[in-house]
Design a protein around this nucleic acid. Structure first.
Length: 379
RNA sequence: GGCCCGUUCAUCUAGGGGUUAGGAUACAAGAUUUUCAUUCUUGGUACAGGGGUUCGAUUCCCCUACGGGCUACCA
Protein backbone atom coordinates (compact mmCIF):
# COMPACT_ATOMS: atom_id res chain seq x y z
CA UNK A 1 0.00 0.00 0.00
CA UNK A 2 2.23 2.74 -1.25
CA UNK A 3 0.20 5.89 -0.99
CA UNK A 4 1.62 9.38 -1.19
CA UNK A 5 2.56 10.47 2.32
CA UNK A 6 0.12 13.02 3.71
CA UNK A 7 0.09 14.33 7.27
CA UNK A 8 -2.02 16.90 8.97
CA UNK A 9 -1.74 19.20 11.92
CA UNK A 10 -5.27 19.61 13.25
CA UNK A 11 -5.55 22.00 16.18
CA UNK A 12 -8.76 23.35 17.59
CA UNK A 13 -8.93 27.15 17.78
CA UNK A 14 -9.60 27.38 21.49
CA UNK A 15 -6.89 29.80 22.57
CA UNK A 16 -3.21 30.48 22.61
CA UNK A 17 -1.08 27.60 21.54
CA UNK A 18 1.85 26.40 23.54
CA UNK A 19 5.00 24.39 23.07
CA UNK A 20 3.18 21.08 22.84
CA UNK A 21 1.09 22.11 19.87
CA UNK A 22 4.00 23.58 18.00
CA UNK A 23 6.04 20.47 18.70
CA UNK A 24 3.32 18.30 17.23
CA UNK A 25 3.23 20.53 14.17
CA UNK A 26 7.02 20.41 13.98
CA UNK A 27 7.24 16.60 14.08
CA UNK A 28 4.58 16.43 11.38
CA UNK A 29 6.58 18.90 9.32
CA UNK A 30 9.96 17.21 9.82
CA UNK A 31 8.62 13.83 8.77
CA UNK A 32 6.86 15.22 5.72
CA UNK A 33 9.98 17.06 4.59
CA UNK A 34 12.15 14.04 5.17
CA UNK A 35 10.09 11.63 3.12
CA UNK A 36 8.76 14.13 0.60
CA UNK A 37 5.10 14.18 1.58
CA UNK A 38 2.46 16.85 2.00
CA UNK A 39 1.48 18.70 5.15
CA UNK A 40 -2.07 19.89 5.71
CA UNK A 41 -3.41 22.39 8.23
CA UNK A 42 -6.94 21.52 9.26
CA UNK A 43 -8.92 23.45 11.83
CA UNK A 44 -11.05 21.34 14.15
CA UNK A 45 -13.70 23.77 15.30
CA UNK A 46 -16.60 21.41 15.85
CA UNK A 47 -17.18 22.77 19.33
CA UNK A 48 -18.73 26.17 18.76
CA UNK A 49 -18.90 26.90 22.47
CA UNK A 50 -15.13 26.83 22.81
CA UNK A 51 -14.31 28.90 19.77
CA UNK A 52 -11.89 31.74 20.48
CA UNK A 53 -11.70 34.52 17.87
CA UNK A 54 -8.21 35.02 16.56
CA UNK A 55 -6.94 31.65 17.71
CA UNK A 56 -6.79 30.36 14.17
CA UNK A 57 -4.68 33.28 13.02
CA UNK A 58 -2.48 32.69 15.99
CA UNK A 59 -1.87 29.06 15.04
CA UNK A 60 -1.04 30.05 11.49
CA UNK A 61 1.32 32.82 12.58
CA UNK A 62 3.13 30.69 15.15
CA UNK A 63 3.78 28.00 12.61
CA UNK A 64 4.91 30.54 10.06
CA UNK A 65 7.31 32.12 12.51
CA UNK A 66 8.73 28.73 13.44
CA UNK A 67 9.20 27.96 9.76
CA UNK A 68 6.60 25.21 9.60
CA UNK A 69 5.12 25.43 6.14
CA UNK A 70 1.97 23.76 4.89
CA UNK A 71 1.10 22.48 1.44
CA UNK A 72 -2.65 22.65 1.96
CA UNK A 73 -4.82 24.23 4.60
CA UNK A 74 -7.35 26.80 5.73
CA UNK A 75 -5.08 29.68 4.86
CA UNK A 76 -3.94 28.46 1.43
CA UNK A 77 -6.67 26.14 0.20
CA UNK A 78 -6.04 22.94 -1.70
CA UNK A 79 -7.73 19.99 -3.42
CA UNK A 80 -9.61 18.93 -0.31
CA UNK A 81 -10.98 22.32 0.69
CA UNK A 82 -12.58 23.46 2.85
CA UNK A 83 -10.12 22.71 5.63
CA UNK A 84 -12.22 24.11 8.43
CA UNK A 85 -14.55 21.51 9.91
CA UNK A 86 -17.34 23.99 10.61
CA UNK A 87 -17.42 24.60 6.85
CA UNK A 88 -17.61 20.88 6.21
CA UNK A 89 -20.59 20.49 8.49
CA UNK A 90 -23.02 19.14 5.90
CA UNK A 91 -20.68 16.39 4.95
CA UNK A 92 -20.58 14.49 8.21
CA UNK A 93 -24.23 13.66 8.64
CA UNK A 94 -24.31 11.16 5.82
CA UNK A 95 -21.42 9.24 7.34
CA UNK A 96 -23.21 9.06 10.67
CA UNK A 97 -26.28 7.81 8.83
CA UNK A 98 -24.21 5.22 7.04
CA UNK A 99 -23.12 3.82 10.36
CA UNK A 100 -26.70 3.69 11.59
CA UNK A 101 -27.77 1.84 8.46
CA UNK A 102 -24.99 -0.66 8.97
CA UNK A 103 -26.10 -1.15 12.56
CA UNK A 104 -22.89 0.32 13.97
CA UNK A 105 -24.49 3.42 15.46
CA UNK A 106 -27.82 4.48 16.95
CA UNK A 107 -29.93 7.46 17.95
CA UNK A 108 -29.91 8.47 21.59
CA UNK A 109 -32.47 10.86 23.01
CA UNK A 110 -31.22 11.08 26.58
CA UNK A 111 -31.19 14.59 27.97
CA UNK A 112 -28.21 15.91 29.90
CA UNK A 113 -30.30 15.52 33.05
CA UNK A 114 -31.06 11.90 32.26
CA UNK A 115 -27.41 11.20 31.59
CA UNK A 116 -26.42 12.74 34.85
CA UNK A 117 -29.10 10.78 36.68
CA UNK A 118 -27.75 7.59 35.14
CA UNK A 119 -24.22 8.42 36.26
CA UNK A 120 -25.33 9.29 39.76
CA UNK A 121 -27.35 6.12 40.01
CA UNK A 122 -24.41 4.01 38.95
CA UNK A 123 -22.02 5.74 41.27
CA UNK A 124 -24.39 5.15 44.16
CA UNK A 125 -24.36 1.52 43.20
CA UNK A 126 -20.62 1.54 43.57
CA UNK A 127 -19.53 2.00 39.99
CA UNK A 128 -16.85 4.71 40.07
CA UNK A 129 -16.76 5.26 36.33
CA UNK A 130 -20.23 5.15 34.84
CA UNK A 131 -20.21 4.79 31.10
CA UNK A 132 -22.74 4.79 28.31
CA UNK A 133 -21.73 1.40 27.04
CA UNK A 134 -22.98 -1.93 25.75
CA UNK A 135 -24.74 -2.59 29.05
CA UNK A 136 -26.13 0.83 29.87
CA UNK A 137 -27.51 1.46 26.41
CA UNK A 138 -30.05 -1.30 26.93
CA UNK A 139 -32.04 0.76 29.37
CA UNK A 140 -31.50 4.29 28.11
CA UNK A 141 -33.57 6.37 25.72
CA UNK A 142 -32.14 5.22 22.43
CA UNK A 143 -32.97 3.35 19.27
CA UNK A 144 -31.49 0.15 20.64
CA UNK A 145 -33.79 0.03 23.65
CA UNK A 146 -36.83 1.83 22.28
CA UNK A 147 -39.32 0.40 19.78
CA UNK A 148 -39.04 1.40 16.18
CA UNK A 149 -42.32 3.28 16.33
CA UNK A 150 -41.27 5.19 19.40
CA UNK A 151 -38.00 6.19 17.78
CA UNK A 152 -39.75 7.37 14.66
CA UNK A 153 -42.29 9.28 16.69
CA UNK A 154 -39.58 11.06 18.64
CA UNK A 155 -37.68 12.03 15.54
CA UNK A 156 -40.89 13.28 13.87
CA UNK A 157 -41.57 15.15 17.04
CA UNK A 158 -38.31 17.00 16.70
CA UNK A 159 -36.86 15.62 19.92
CA UNK A 160 -33.16 16.43 20.10
CA UNK A 161 -30.89 13.45 19.76
CA UNK A 162 -27.28 12.46 19.26
CA UNK A 163 -25.83 9.58 17.31
CA UNK A 164 -23.65 7.20 19.28
CA UNK A 165 -21.29 4.53 18.12
CA UNK A 166 -22.46 1.02 18.97
CA UNK A 167 -19.29 -0.38 20.40
CA UNK A 168 -19.29 -4.17 20.08
CA UNK A 169 -18.91 -6.35 23.12
CA UNK A 170 -15.70 -8.17 23.89
CA UNK A 171 -13.69 -7.57 20.79
CA UNK A 172 -9.95 -7.12 20.84
CA UNK A 173 -8.79 -3.90 19.24
CA UNK A 174 -5.12 -3.88 18.47
CA UNK A 175 -3.13 -1.34 16.57
CA UNK A 176 0.49 -0.55 15.98
CA UNK A 177 1.73 2.80 17.24
CA UNK A 178 4.87 4.15 15.59
CA UNK A 179 6.24 5.15 18.96
CA UNK A 180 4.75 2.64 21.40
CA UNK A 181 4.52 -0.54 19.38
CA UNK A 182 1.45 -2.74 19.65
CA UNK A 183 -1.28 -1.36 21.88
CA UNK A 184 -4.25 -3.54 22.83
CA UNK A 185 -7.70 -2.68 24.15
CA UNK A 186 -10.87 -4.65 24.69
CA UNK A 187 -13.99 -3.10 23.21
CA UNK A 188 -16.02 -3.96 26.33
CA UNK A 189 -14.07 -1.31 28.18
CA UNK A 190 -14.91 1.32 25.60
CA UNK A 191 -18.04 3.43 25.77
CA UNK A 192 -20.54 4.38 23.09
CA UNK A 193 -19.01 7.72 22.22
CA UNK A 194 -21.15 10.42 20.71
CA UNK A 195 -20.33 10.77 17.02
CA UNK A 196 -22.86 13.36 16.06
CA UNK A 197 -24.14 16.06 18.39
CA UNK A 198 -27.65 17.40 18.77
CA UNK A 199 -26.53 20.75 17.41
CA UNK A 200 -25.86 19.17 14.05
CA UNK A 201 -22.09 19.07 14.40
CA UNK A 202 -19.95 15.96 14.52
CA UNK A 203 -17.68 15.30 17.49
CA UNK A 204 -13.95 15.02 17.12
CA UNK A 205 -14.26 11.24 16.90
CA UNK A 206 -16.34 11.29 13.75
CA UNK A 207 -14.96 14.40 12.06
CA UNK A 208 -11.39 13.32 12.60
CA UNK A 209 -11.84 9.88 11.08
CA UNK A 210 -13.97 11.08 8.18
CA UNK A 211 -11.64 13.94 7.31
CA UNK A 212 -8.50 11.89 7.61
CA UNK A 213 -10.09 9.38 5.27
CA UNK A 214 -11.32 12.00 2.82
CA UNK A 215 -8.04 13.90 2.86
CA UNK A 216 -6.10 10.67 2.40
CA UNK A 217 -4.03 11.11 5.52
CA UNK A 218 -1.40 8.41 5.95
CA UNK A 219 0.03 9.25 9.38
CA UNK A 220 -1.71 10.65 12.42
CA UNK A 221 0.77 12.33 14.75
CA UNK A 222 -0.80 13.70 17.91
CA UNK A 223 -0.36 13.93 21.69
CA UNK A 224 -0.55 10.99 24.06
CA UNK A 225 -3.82 12.30 25.49
CA UNK A 226 -5.45 10.77 22.41
CA UNK A 227 -4.23 7.27 23.05
CA UNK A 228 -7.31 6.18 25.05
CA UNK A 229 -9.67 7.18 22.25
CA UNK A 230 -7.52 5.74 19.47
CA UNK A 231 -9.23 2.32 19.69
CA UNK A 232 -12.58 4.02 19.12
CA UNK A 233 -11.13 5.61 16.02
CA UNK A 234 -9.69 2.32 14.83
CA UNK A 235 -13.08 0.70 15.35
CA UNK A 236 -14.72 3.49 13.38
CA UNK A 237 -12.40 2.89 10.43
CA UNK A 238 -13.38 -0.77 10.54
CA UNK A 239 -17.09 0.01 10.65
CA UNK A 240 -16.75 2.15 7.55
CA UNK A 241 -14.69 -0.53 5.87
CA UNK A 242 -11.68 1.74 5.60
CA UNK A 243 -9.12 -0.47 7.39
CA UNK A 244 -6.96 -0.74 4.31
CA UNK A 245 -6.44 3.00 4.19
CA UNK A 246 -6.35 3.60 7.92
CA UNK A 247 -3.46 5.92 8.80
CA UNK A 248 -0.56 4.89 11.02
CA UNK A 249 -0.63 6.40 14.47
CA UNK A 250 2.15 8.08 16.44
CA UNK A 251 1.19 9.20 19.93
CA UNK A 252 3.70 11.70 21.25
CA UNK A 253 4.84 11.79 24.88
CA UNK A 254 3.52 14.77 26.81
CA UNK A 255 5.53 17.83 27.77
CA UNK A 256 5.57 18.29 31.54
CA UNK A 257 5.77 21.40 33.69
CA UNK A 258 9.25 22.64 34.74
CA UNK A 259 8.41 21.78 38.35
CA UNK A 260 5.88 19.61 40.05
CA UNK A 261 3.49 17.35 38.28
CA UNK A 262 1.29 17.40 35.28
CA UNK A 263 1.44 18.44 31.71
CA UNK A 264 2.41 21.90 30.63
CA UNK A 265 -0.40 24.42 30.81
CA UNK A 266 -1.03 28.04 29.99
CA UNK A 267 -0.45 29.24 33.51
CA UNK A 268 3.10 27.92 33.61
CA UNK A 269 4.27 30.69 31.35
CA UNK A 270 3.57 33.43 33.82
CA UNK A 271 4.33 31.36 36.86
CA UNK A 272 7.90 30.68 35.86
CA UNK A 273 8.43 34.04 34.28
CA UNK A 274 9.15 32.28 31.07
CA UNK A 275 6.41 32.42 28.49
CA UNK A 276 5.83 29.29 26.55
CA UNK A 277 4.16 30.73 23.53
CA UNK A 278 5.78 31.57 20.29
CA UNK A 279 3.95 34.78 19.51
CA UNK A 280 2.32 37.60 21.33
CA UNK A 281 -1.19 36.89 22.51
CA UNK A 282 -2.36 40.27 23.62
CA UNK A 283 -5.89 39.33 24.63
CA UNK A 284 -4.52 37.21 27.40
CA UNK A 285 -1.57 39.35 28.29
CA UNK A 286 0.91 36.68 27.49
CA UNK A 287 4.03 37.42 25.56
CA UNK A 288 5.98 34.65 23.94
CA UNK A 289 9.42 33.21 23.49
CA UNK A 290 9.69 35.23 20.30
CA UNK A 291 9.32 38.46 22.25
CA UNK A 292 11.79 37.10 24.76
CA UNK A 293 14.45 37.10 22.07
CA UNK A 294 14.29 33.54 20.84
CA UNK A 295 15.41 32.77 17.34
CA UNK A 296 13.02 30.53 15.39
CA UNK A 297 15.82 28.09 14.61
CA UNK A 298 16.74 27.82 18.29
CA UNK A 299 13.11 27.40 19.20
CA UNK A 300 12.50 24.47 16.87
CA UNK A 301 15.85 22.94 17.75
CA UNK A 302 14.99 22.94 21.42
CA UNK A 303 11.43 21.84 20.93
CA UNK A 304 12.48 18.98 18.69
CA UNK A 305 14.62 17.69 21.56
CA UNK A 306 11.66 17.52 23.91
CA UNK A 307 11.02 13.84 23.43
CA UNK A 308 13.23 13.18 20.44
CA UNK A 309 16.99 12.83 20.03
CA UNK A 310 19.23 11.85 17.16
CA UNK A 311 21.16 9.18 19.08
CA UNK A 312 24.42 11.06 18.66
CA UNK A 313 26.14 13.74 20.71
CA UNK A 314 25.08 16.48 18.36
CA UNK A 315 22.60 18.88 19.92
CA UNK A 316 22.71 21.97 17.76
CA UNK A 317 20.82 21.38 14.56
CA UNK A 318 19.82 23.54 11.65
CA UNK A 319 16.36 23.05 10.21
CA UNK A 320 17.78 21.01 7.36
CA UNK A 321 19.78 18.80 9.72
CA UNK A 322 16.69 18.25 11.83
CA UNK A 323 14.77 17.10 8.78
CA UNK A 324 17.53 14.69 7.80
CA UNK A 325 17.92 13.24 11.29
CA UNK A 326 14.27 12.95 12.27
CA UNK A 327 12.46 9.65 12.70
CA UNK A 328 9.57 8.37 14.81
CA UNK A 329 11.69 5.50 16.06
CA UNK A 330 13.86 7.95 17.96
CA UNK A 331 11.00 9.55 19.84
CA UNK A 332 10.90 8.48 23.48
CA UNK A 333 7.90 7.08 25.28
CA UNK A 334 8.05 9.03 28.53
CA UNK A 335 7.01 12.59 29.15
CA UNK A 336 9.64 15.30 28.87
CA UNK A 337 9.93 18.15 31.33
CA UNK A 338 10.25 21.62 29.87
CA UNK A 339 13.49 23.18 31.10
CA UNK A 340 13.70 26.96 30.55
CA UNK A 341 17.44 26.99 31.34
CA UNK A 342 18.32 24.55 28.63
CA UNK A 343 16.07 26.39 26.22
CA UNK A 344 18.14 29.50 26.86
CA UNK A 345 21.33 27.61 26.17
CA UNK A 346 19.99 26.45 22.80
CA UNK A 347 19.19 30.04 21.92
CA UNK A 348 22.66 31.17 22.92
CA UNK A 349 24.25 28.56 20.68
CA UNK A 350 22.18 29.66 17.71
CA UNK A 351 22.93 33.32 18.33
CA UNK A 352 26.62 32.52 18.25
CA UNK A 353 26.15 30.86 14.90
CA UNK A 354 24.72 34.03 13.39
CA UNK A 355 26.89 36.33 11.30
CA UNK A 356 27.44 39.92 12.36
CA UNK A 357 25.26 41.14 9.51
CA UNK A 358 22.39 38.83 10.39
CA UNK A 359 22.60 39.90 14.00
CA UNK A 360 22.60 43.55 12.96
CA UNK A 361 19.46 42.99 10.92
CA UNK A 362 17.75 41.39 13.87
CA UNK A 363 18.75 44.24 16.12
CA UNK A 364 17.69 46.96 13.72
CA UNK A 365 14.04 47.24 14.75
CA UNK A 366 14.98 47.49 18.41
CA UNK A 367 17.61 50.11 17.77
CA UNK A 368 15.28 52.16 15.62
CA UNK A 369 12.74 52.10 18.37
CA UNK A 370 15.34 53.31 20.86
CA UNK A 371 16.50 56.08 18.55
CA UNK A 372 12.93 57.19 18.00
CA UNK A 373 12.46 57.28 21.72
CA UNK A 374 15.66 59.27 22.24
CA UNK A 375 14.82 61.84 19.59
CA UNK A 376 11.42 62.23 21.10
CA UNK A 377 12.98 62.97 24.45
CA UNK A 378 15.61 65.35 23.05
CA UNK A 379 13.13 67.32 21.02
C1' G B 1 -11.76 3.53 41.38
C1' G B 2 -11.44 1.58 36.00
C1' C B 3 -8.65 1.53 31.41
C1' C B 4 -4.15 2.84 28.91
C1' C B 5 0.93 4.63 28.76
C1' G B 6 5.41 5.26 31.17
C1' U B 7 10.02 4.94 34.98
C1' U B 8 18.71 5.72 33.52
C1' C B 9 22.18 11.75 37.17
C1' A B 10 18.34 17.83 39.59
C1' U B 11 16.76 18.29 34.03
C1' C B 12 16.95 16.53 28.56
C1' U B 13 18.81 11.97 27.33
C1' A B 14 22.53 7.82 25.00
C1' G B 15 23.24 2.81 25.79
C1' G B 16 21.85 -2.19 26.26
C1' G B 17 22.72 -9.45 28.83
C1' G B 18 29.43 -8.90 30.72
C1' U B 19 30.62 -0.79 29.90
C1' U B 20 35.17 2.88 34.54
C1' A B 21 26.85 3.35 32.57
C1' G B 22 28.41 8.16 27.86
C1' G B 23 26.90 13.34 26.38
C1' A B 24 24.35 18.06 27.24
C1' U B 25 22.01 21.71 30.61
C1' A B 26 22.16 23.27 35.55
C1' C B 27 25.24 23.21 39.87
C1' A B 28 30.29 23.49 42.55
C1' A B 29 35.55 24.71 42.39
C1' G B 30 39.48 26.93 39.71
C1' A B 31 41.64 29.68 35.48
C1' U B 32 41.22 33.45 31.57
C1' U B 33 38.68 38.00 30.41
C1' U B 34 38.17 46.08 29.98
C1' U B 35 32.65 44.50 28.58
C1' C B 36 29.27 39.85 27.41
C1' A B 37 23.02 35.33 27.35
C1' U B 38 32.10 34.71 26.98
C1' U B 39 35.86 30.71 27.04
C1' C B 40 38.75 26.68 29.27
C1' U B 41 39.80 22.96 33.15
C1' U B 42 38.15 19.94 37.04
C1' G B 43 34.20 17.70 40.11
C1' G B 44 29.79 15.26 42.26
C1' U B 45 25.18 13.01 41.50
C1' A B 46 21.46 7.96 37.96
C1' C B 47 19.75 2.38 35.96
C1' A B 48 12.46 2.94 41.52
C1' G B 49 11.84 -1.82 44.65
C1' G B 50 11.03 -7.19 44.81
C1' G B 51 10.92 -11.71 42.39
C1' G B 52 12.24 -14.73 38.26
C1' U B 53 15.17 -16.29 33.38
C1' U B 54 20.60 -16.57 32.98
C1' C B 55 27.24 -18.38 34.23
C1' G B 56 26.02 -13.09 34.44
C1' A B 57 20.93 -8.47 34.59
C1' U B 58 20.54 -1.57 34.41
C1' U B 59 19.21 -4.19 29.79
C1' C B 60 14.43 -9.83 28.92
C1' C B 61 9.64 -11.56 31.84
C1' C B 62 6.24 -10.91 36.12
C1' C B 63 4.57 -8.24 40.43
C1' U B 64 4.60 -3.85 43.46
C1' A B 65 5.44 1.28 44.00
C1' C B 66 5.49 5.83 41.83
C1' G B 67 4.36 9.27 37.78
C1' G B 68 1.20 10.64 33.77
C1' G B 69 -3.05 10.53 30.45
C1' C B 70 -8.16 9.40 29.62
C1' U B 71 -12.73 8.43 32.00
C1' A B 72 -18.15 15.11 28.36
C1' C B 73 -23.38 16.17 23.20
C1' C B 74 -14.20 19.23 24.67
C1' A B 75 -10.74 18.63 21.48
Amino acid sequence: MDRPVRLRYAPSPTGAQHLGGIRTALYNYLFVKKVGGKLILRIEDTDQTRYVPGAEEYVINSCKWAGIEFDEGVHIGGPHAPYRQSERKDLYRKYADELIEKGHAYYAFDTPEELEAMRNRMMEQGNPSPAYDHITRQYMQNSVALSKDEVEKRIQNGDPYVIRIKMPRNEEIKFHDLIRGWVTFNSSQLDDKVLFKSDGMPTYHLANVVDDYLMEITHVVRGEEWLPSAPTHVMTYKMFGWENVMPSFAHLPLILKPEGNGKLSKRDGDKYGFPLYSLDWKEQNISGLKEKGFLPEAYINFIAFLGWNPGTDQEIFSREELIQAFSFERIGKSGARFDPEKAKWFNQQHIKLKSGEALADLLQPYLEQKILLLTAIIW
